[in-house]
């Protein structure tokens, strides 16, 4: 069954159609790479699905439920998590707290149980903490739980975003240019991390400009240009698709 099923999705800002009539689906435990030149509408596509924007048109079904137009927090609660192209960590909070915030929507403590510190609240807090530490460890940030997010090096911030997203306990993970700004070694580690996350059961959609990474890791690739889907298929097929080459050469960017 498709984890995510998008049909005829469009999003326009005033006169500009950033996403134009896109059909899209992901199956369980798949890694789908979403590529396209700058301004192609990739991030907007993420934003519409995760609820940051309401779609202008189209259907979005996640595990059989329509999620179009829901709040991001509701979408997250249903099981979709994301990272941001421009890192958006909670800068003045520690790495550990960042990941703990990620578990917010899986927690039940309310004002009253927080005040009373009921055994349940204490237990929950402890579990959340332990899981957060484990997640930091998992993404390779074991040594820095108490470090403020803003003081972490760039690569670590990207990893922390992944840990925070995973803390929401998602079934589907959206990564927006996770390797941006990373050196080759870090990119290599990141690829391994993403594969591992998938192997443990997650479904992943990934925007990436680093072609080596995205071609190397994706089961399937979807190409957007000017908001439209121009190609779809295995990395090898897409790589040779004249429309894709044209789109990239036309923009004279990387490839």
């Amino acid at each position: 069954m498709a984890v995510l099923d998008v049909t005829g999705l469009s999003k326009s800002f005033g006169g500009l159609t950033a996403v134009n009539d896109v059909d899209f689906h992901v199956d369980e435990q798949e890694i789908v790479g979403l590529i396209g030149p700058n301004g192609a509408g990739k991030t907007t596509f993420f934003n519409v699905i995760t609820g940051v924007y309401e779609p202008s048109e189209g259907k979005i079904e996640f595990l059989g439920t329509s999620i179009a137009g829901r709040l991001p927090s509701q979408v997250t609660k249903l099981g979709i998590a994301r990272t941001f192209q421009n890192i958006r960590l909670f800068n003045d909070m520690t790495a550990l707290e960042n990941v703990m915030v990620g578990q917010h929507c899986r927690m039940k403590t309310n004002v009253f149980s927080a005040i009373l510190r009921t055994p349940r609240a204490l237990r929950e807090e402890e579990q959340v903490r332990d899981k957060a530490l484990a997640l930091l460890d998992y993404v390779g940030l074991k040594g820095h739980p108490g470090e403020l997010a803003m003081n972490l090096p760039y690569g670590s911030q990207r990893r922390l975003e992944i840990a925070r997203a995973m803390a929401t306990d998602p079934q589907l993970l959206f990564l927006d240019e996770p390797a941006a700004g990373m050196n080759p070694q870090e990119t290599e580690d990141l690829m391994r991390l993403i594969r591992r996350i998938r192997d443990e059961g997650m479904t992943i959609i990934l925007i990436e400009h680093d072609m080596r990474l995205v071609m190397g890791i994706s089961d399937r690739i979807v190409v957007l240009d000017h908001g439209e889907k121009i190609a779809e298929g295995s990395p090898d097929v897409v790589r040779q698709d004249p429309k894709v080459i044209e789109a990239y050469l036309g923009h004279a960017v990387e490839a």
């Binding site: 927090s73 998590a81 958006r88 917010h104």
Partner: peptide, 13 residues
């Protein structure tokens, strides 16, 4: 710290 990220992390802001 970041309202949009907070919402994306499941906080009904």
């Amino acid at each position: 710290e970041d309202e949009i990220a907070a919402e994306a992390m499941g906080i009904h802001t």
